[in-house]
Amino acid sequence: MAKPDIKVTDGPFSAHVWEVIAPIRKAIDELPLLKELADGSLSGDVFLHYIQQDMLYLKEYSRALAIIAAKAPESEQMLRFLDSSKRAILVEQGLHSDFLKTFGISPEDLDGAAASPSGFAYINFLMNVVQSSSYAVGVAAILPCFWIYWDVGVRIKAMEKTPGNPYQAWIDTYGDPEFAEGARAVIAFADEAATLASAAEYQQMLDVFTRAAQYEWMFWQSATERETWRV
């Protein structure tokens, strides 16, 4: 009889994977976009590129969360992911719309806007994972967006405020305790799912979490570069 796969890990999945992506987290911390957003010196053109791309991303991320909800094994997880799917749309309609008004951009101005190469790749990666993989692997793929934004938001909000920072609403949104509570819940779901995963599935969880974290870096960096399709 073949021996079952056995996972050898120290502590919960979240502790393991957070350490695995330490180099990526360091690279994110060093992003010019985040440093300049924190002190209010970020170029309006760069921020506008980011917001436009984030609006496109969140529409698809909301769909990914709804798919995860449909695969959830318990009603608690299902309700949490359905609520998160709704909140992703509300952020897109609220926070982003306010910023667009600040920049004098109307929703009609964005009609026909296309995802950048990095945004397109990230969106398609997430949708492919949540549609074709297990609940556990899907949760691991969508988790970095929650966790990294919470981590970045809390640390920026703890810094000394820049009077008149035009991006303070963004900082307040992702540094808010309510957003932190949602991130912690998804971390707990990932840890729970990992305890039930086979060794192969656990490795898949690590792999997709790491890739999604890389895409988080790429997404912010692409805004700094105002990335477009070259041909």
Results as ranks from 00 to 15, higher is better:
M1F: 06
K7L: 00
T9R: 04
D10R: 15
F13G: 08
H16F: 03
H16I: 08
V17N: 11
E19Q: 13
I28W: 00
I28K: 02
D29C: 06
K35Q: 11
L37G: 08
L37N: 07
A38F: 02
D39P: 09
L48P: 05
H49F: 00
H49N: 04
Y50G: 02
Q53S: 05
D54E: 12
R63T: 14
A64Y: 11
A64S: 14
I68C: 13
P73Q: 03
R80D: 15
F81S: 15
S84F: 07
Q93C: 10
Q93E: 14
S97V: 15
D109C: 08
A114Y: 12
G119V: 03
F120S: 09
N128D: 09
V129R: 12
S133Y: 05
G138M: 10
V139P: 09
P144F: 06
C145P: 01
Y149H: 01
W150M: 04
G153S: 04
V154N: 01
K157H: 13
A158E: 00
A169M: 15
W170N: 11
D172A: 14
A180V: 14
F189A: 08
F189R: 08
A190Q: 06
A190W: 06
T195G: 11
A197F: 04
A199Q: 15
E201F: 10
M205E: 08
R211W: 05
E216P: 07
W220M: 13
S222A: 14
R226W: 03
R230Q: 13
V231A: 14
